[in-house]
Nucleic acid binder design. Sequence first.
DNA 1: TTGTACGCGTTATCAC
DNA 2: GTGATAACGCGTACAA
Lengths: 345, 345
Amino acid sequence: MKSVNLKRLAQELNLSVATVSRALNDRYDISQATKDRVRELAAKLNYEPNPYASSLRRQRSGTIGVVVPEIANHFFSLAINGIEEVARLNHYHVLIYLTHEDYQRELDIVRLLAGGRVDGVLLSAASTSYTDTHLEMLRERGIPLVFFDRVHQAPDNAQITTDDYESGYKATRHLLDVGCRSVAHLTIAPTLSISRRRMQGYIDALLDGGLRYDPSLVLHAQGRREQDVEMIQDLLHQRPGVDGIFAAVESLAVGTYEACRVLNRRIPHDVRVIGFSNLEIAALLDPPLTTITQPAYAIGKEAAKVLFKAVLKNVPVSSGHSLELKSELFIRESTFPAPKLVKSA
Amino acid sequence: MKSVNLKRLAQELNLSVATVSRALNDRYDISQATKDRVRELAAKLNYEPNPYASSLRRQRSGTIGVVVPEIANHFFSLAINGIEEVARLNHYHVLIYLTHEDYQRELDIVRLLAGGRVDGVLLSAASTSYTDTHLEMLRERGIPLVFFDRVHQAPDNAQITTDDYESGYKATRHLLDVGCRSVAHLTIAPTLSISRRRMQGYIDALLDGGLRYDPSLVLHAQGRREQDVEMIQDLLHQRPGVDGIFAAVESLAVGTYEACRVLNRRIPHDVRVIGFSNLEIAALLDPPLTTITQPAYAIGKEAAKVLFKAVLKNVPVSSGHSLELKSELFIRESTFPAPKLVKSA
DNA sequence: TTGTACGCGTTATCAC
DNA sequence: GTGATAACGCGTACAA
């Protein structure tokens, strides 16, 4: 129950607490013999320095905070994987916080983190997040912050994103190329950076392709699975001319599959589908889903690298460290121009 | 850059540090007027207590540690979701650690956590984890530990699991019921609690069904995607009689789909497939996958609840708090007895 | 009702 | 090379 601390080690070794501390921290002014003695006993007693005393004294927590909308999501769990990797290499700990797309929760979390619990923060914004005044708190406290994927438009902040505009353009363009003439766009909160950029790509691709931009073909989902599927069903029902769907997030691509199943619409024969997605099994779906895939793991890794550059050097991050990675288009059956009705056996 | 602390508040209010501290902690012996004054200023200055000083003083971190093999995995990310939920309600923070199935890493993490960084630990064992002496360290320090899903057989420890034996039995039985006569079992490390129990269910179901248990039909995967798929291909190739496959983990069910695709084996016509899985889109696969689905979110939630019972009351957890939840069988096309070769259009 | 003084365990400064 | 001592910011026993 009682933890072994420096005092205990010092007593047993007939040394001062200071010497023991320095020995364990491998300071040059301690003799090798003493270091050996100290370390031996420390190992024997399973000594671990009290992280809170240490943090208090050094004014450094050895911990970063990661704030994401949700975790049961391929994109974010892959990103966290990358983040954890970098953190581990730097001997840092990782605190996880979920906003569940709730702005108030994001606010509460950031306020908490600004209290000094972490040396740096990685954040992907909640979809309902509409201001960034709370991020000022982190800045005031000198806690570096790096956004990833879903960024706030805070002035002079580092952010790791993907080429959302280009990807939105490419996705839409691809649908046009395979023959679609009426393309709907399913997306989430329009306040979100990624939504706006992907949608702008969609619009520009339409116009460049000689089509009209029809705002009624853009649907904003609420993030509640059943309602979203219903919304898609309504679209397919009321606008039978729609022959292509571009989903800005994975869940909406999946929702489209479900809606099509209910309405007996064949993909890609009746409607072609493309979506942002990090599903590893996109190729095993019926039919295999054409995806725009973000380098989620790399995003997490790069974001963490940029953050640690600031954390370890104790300097603020700046927009100069921002990075834009490239997403990749994987063409599969869901957007085939000439649908195969029956699989070859 | 400089954080506002009690001293600063005390100075500005002409109060002692102690009074401010008590006011903020809503102690009964402070006048309402003072409390109001203190709180107003604290709010105005965005005061947040220094968590490390607080933890050091209180001998309590307000943090739990979660140790999982990986995070880019539906089961674990759902479980973490449940854990985070409970932690948040208790105003606790969550540290995440990934072992990547590496025993040494698990050991290092546990040693670190035993240093007092957390008030409690939730752990799902790495597949290469073969002893549990390191868990003694937590016990020595009086840090409660609750296992979930992949448990170590530590004496008198709480663990939240699912009915793995019954599920393994049910899965195998289901394959026999739909006509399989030669069922292979794909699993991971045999040292793992869940592997052993699921496999025992498999064996017993075979015997009860009047079949022989053939150890050469049990394959242990290494967890490397490509090699695992190759292994499955070899099985299908060398044992053409195999007409049913029971995958003990999601990745192996997916691997089976991939192997079948390469070898042009039709599911369920040539071989029927069932697997443990938390894939939300199992129904959208080609063909829809029959799954044994664990209540991952509930597992995380219950494990956290049990942990907090111990943490908050400062008592050790005991095996009396263990819980076994039920998995659910979802029958889909991948195990249909009469395969439909062509989908209805 | 409020203030004083101490200690949580560690690290940094200064002295020897 | 090593030891004594102060300080990090907070919470609490004791005093007033």
